[in-house]
Simulated assay, not measured.
Amino acid sequence: MTDTVDSAIKRAALLLQSSTDSAKLDAQVLLLDVLQKPHSYLFSWPEKQLSAAQQLQFDEYCQRRLNGEPVAHITGLREFWSLPLQVNASTLIPRPDTETLVEHALGLQLPTVANVLDLGTGTGAIALALASEMPHWQITGVDRVSEAVALANTNKQRLGFTNVGFVQSDWFSEVAMQQFDLIVSNPPYIEQDDIHLNQGDVRFEPLSALVADDDGMADIKYIITQARDYLTTNGYLLIEHGYQQSTKVHSFFAQMAYTNILTVKDLANNDRVTLAQWPG
């Protein structure tokens, strides 16, 4: 006998509670992926019996989650800025905190047809979120990893956006001579010995997208330094960083002669994004 929708969630939540602090939600997301149904289905059809094939797939999903594999890797999808994005192990899994960067980028006073660069684009989450809101912006997303560029292009094609393109580039290496009104980045910023690297979903994500030298500041400093050659006069640079790095990031922006430096908080009220203008 297979589970009903309701009993499947209850059983899975009990199974997963030792390995995740969001056991019920994880169970719901995994079951909905198996059923290929919207969230409302869980409440509309709680007594619906799973087929044998659905039961088998759901049990397999739960075992993978029990082993620590991220839900996004199991389902192959993660929603960001209300966009369904394909994800895989070649990139970071988009996180809600990064929507803070998108929100503040959209609030800037930029030209109607702004030229925008997303450094370390990964799944393309930031670039695609901006493209969805600003169809007149011309957006380029770059990533050093070819698999990430391929994934970002897949997401672009699935969503049908025409004002964004993705290029393989080691930071600025393939955008020489271009000028941007806005540069955004969620670069690696975690220290190499951070204990969180051995916990949760990050265990399944590429270290190269997470860790940076110089107490997590190496890539941030490189971007701030080099971006001066690629920003238009009064162009903006927005960088996501760790919640304890805001003072260092703010100071380095000032050291590099940027103006109007501002740090903004994420949904959890932690310092998360610092932005500044290049006076040219």
Rank of each mutant, 00 (worst) to 15 (best):
L207C: 06
P84N: 08
T75I: 10
D181N: 05
P279N: 14
K37F: 13
P38Q: 00
A72E: 00
Q168V: 11
S173T: 13
Q54K: 10
W171Y: 06
A53H: 12
N88S: 01
T123Q: 02
F43V: 13
L32K: 09
I9P: 07
A268D: 11
R65T: 08
G165F: 07
M256T: 15
Q54T: 11
W137Q: 11
L275W: 10
T162C: 11
M217Q: 08
F252D: 10
D219N: 07
D26T: 01
A114V: 07
F252Q: 06
S44Q: 15
A212T: 06
V167Y: 14
R144V: 05
V113E: 14
S146E: 14
A254Q: 12
N155K: 03
Y222C: 00
F43H: 12
I239K: 05
A127M: 12
Q226P: 01
L110F: 14
L42P: 08
V102P: 07
E99R: 05
Q63G: 11
S208C: 05
L14P: 09
L16D: 08
S173I: 11
A52M: 14
C62E: 02
T225P: 02
S246R: 02
N269E: 13
Y258M: 12
D26L: 01
K156M: 05
L210T: 00
N186K: 06
T274A: 01
H250R: 04
T140W: 12
L56W: 13
I126R: 08
G76V: 12
Q226V: 08
D229A: 14
S173G: 04
